[in-house]
């Protein structure tokens, strides 16, 4: 148990150090997120009523897209320089190592989206309560995106056009998260009870946490053959 935890921390620390030394990669995804969100008002017009209504959906879809962009990097760099091969030979369950990689990936690509949300929410004239709920759902939902996306990233490892294929595989699987995430914000705005949305998202998070690292580990073994 202790060695498992040690392995988890080692992988998280390693990937965070690597991300810090390749800051540009991380930043481009964030800039993409901000840019996509800011393009919507230009596309549909500046009426605050409409923007307020659209905001949760726009932010969530932008978060989905930018996480698809960053997921391509989850395993590919390690695959190209051979470190992934060595990770498959680690004398510990591979799913633990995968969990560590997903966790650090979320910290550099999911968590910043949550932190950027208040600023972008103000662009869309969202109320404080709605922004708070949006942050909460993104906080619960972006880890799910990273986990489900990890399966796609592992399956498309080293393939031509892997990035587009990854989105094609993963986006349909992420629809429930999108629905519950935006639904919760709309429920807050219309004064309804949000506990159902949040508990469903929590359930999805637990489900993903239990199954996806193992499935991703299997996918990696298939892709490394």
């Amino acid at each position: 148990m202790k060695t498992l935890f040690y392995l988890l921390m080692l992988v998280v620390r390693r990937d965070l150090i690597l991300a810090m030394r390749r800051r540009a990669d991380v930043l481009t995804t964030l800039i993409f997120f901000v840019m996509v969100v800011s393009l919507f008002p230009l596309g549909v017009g500046p009426e605050t009523d409409m923007l307020r209504k659209m905001a949760p959906g726009v932010l969530w879809v932008a978060a989905l897209l930018s996480s698809m962009l960053s997921l391509g990097r989850l395993f590919s760099a390690d695959y190209l320089d051979g470190t992934l091969e060595q990770m498959l030979l680690v004398p510990q369950p591979l799913s633990m190592l995968v969990l560590g990689k997903i966790a650090s990936h979320w910290m550099v690509s999911g968590l910043p989206l949550v932190l950027l949300t208040p600023v972008l929410g103000l662009q869309f004239d969202m109320s404080i309560a709605a922004i708070g709920m949006l942050m909460l759902t993104l906080l619960l939902g972006t880890p799910i995106l990273s986990m489900v996306g990890a399966i796609g990233a592992a399956l498309t490892l080293g393939l031509r056009g892997g990035g587009v294929l990854l989105s094609l595989l993963v986006l349909p699987l992420c629809i429930p998260v999108l629905i519950f995430g935006t639904g919760a914000v709309q429920a807050v705005v219309s004064g309804m009870n949000v506990s159902a949305h949040l508990s469903l998202m929590g359930a999805l998070l637990v489900l993903a946490l239990v199954f996806t690292p193992w499935v991703t580990a299997q996918a990696l073994r298939i892709s490394m053959e």
Binding site: I17, L18, R21, R22, L80, D81, G82, T83, E85, Q86, L89
Partner: peptide, 11 residues
């Protein structure tokens, strides 16, 4: 195992 690739991170 030591493969063709060095398994070294550039950074």
């Amino acid at each position: 195992y030591l493969g063709h690739l060095n398994a070294i991170k550039d950074e």
